[in-house]
Design a protein around this nucleic acid. Structure first.
Lengths: 163, 163
DNA sequence: TACTTCGTTCAGTACAAACTGAACATAACA
DNA sequence: TGTTATGTTCAGTTTGTACTGAACGAAGTA
């Protein structure tokens, strides 16, 4: 086996990972960068990423920062080189958790806010007619579900699954 | 309280729901349609959706079909009318589960396929040098995590949370 | 059978998100 | 201090996708 055929396996995987993150709505470069680092033994610089992945300076910089935020990659020091180097973290449970939290928790807040203001509006105009009661009931039911999903995060059983 | 102010509460919610589904990558109309049905006491036709939400015929048709696929809405019969009418289901746990499964399970298959073909390629060219071993190890670790996520779905504890 | 009403399809469009790259900021070095 | 090497930012461009609407099909009606 030679390094070239090993490379082709890795390149294929980089492409697949890019498609995966893209189809998950996270953009293609995130998957590409992470896969590249994940299969590299040595730390990788931003310039390496640009060259190997054929992406722009801006994409490499912003992509790697996003991954760092989620704990997916880590900056490392390479003696005698001014460049920033990165390696991949392989604690997937933690990475997934961070990414999901980061993208979902602010949305949950926003949903709570919508529910709250709807309830408040209803209270202001309450007269208890049929339609108002119906809407109030449905709002209540939706709020209960929202709370349940919210509570799910704190559930120790679920927490354990991300360890 | 009059119906107009009730309407404005509902309209606001429809807008919020549309933004929510949109930001989750499911398109705005899905949220709009579901919210409209969810707060309507009577069954709603496709024409109603077009009028109330200001969306096209095509969007109403395709949106409602998607929601039906996930069990979020149900077609109902209205005597003496040829139109199709729909009402919202309120079993959110089931709806969420169906939606997540529908959008994720095929992706999981695709990831498994990528992992599989990478492993196979490695086996074909195995010579046990350092880099190949490194890549093989990382691939193994990734595969283990994939299996763990896959198993998560069948976990009775998780299942219970979607009841 | 011709006409009307309704739902579906899909090529085209409009819009939003991802990516680019040049200008800028920062820090090391001579 | 000027020069070089590097990272960041963001206005502009590209790309992808959700939505539109006209054409079509199906099924009821007169």
């Amino acid at each position: 086996m030679n390094n070239q055929s090993l490379d082709s396996v890795v390149y294929q995987f980089i492409e697949d990972a890019g498609n995966a993150t893209k189809s998950l709505g996270m953009g293609r470069v995130l998957g590409q960068i992470f896969a590249y680092l994940y299969f590299s033994q040595d730390p990788i610089s931003l310039a390496d990423m640009q060259d190997t992945l054929g992406i722009s300076k801006g994409s490499a910089s912003m992509g790697v920062r996003q991954l760092e935020k989620w704990g997916a990659v880590k900056k490392v020091w390479v003696k005698g080189d001014r460049k920033d180097y990165y390696i991949a973290n392989d604690w997937f449970g933690r990475i997934l958790k961070n990414a999901v939290m980061d993208t979902l928790s602010e949305k949950m807040e926003s949903y709570a806010s919508s529910l709250g203001s709807a309830e408040k509006s209803l209270d202001d105009l309450a007269d208890g007619n049929g339609r108002e009661k119906f809407i109030r009931d449905r709002l209540k039911h939706l709020g209960d579900f929202h709370d349940r999903v919210r509570g799910l995060v704190k559930n120790p059983l679920v927490k354990a699954l991300f360890k």
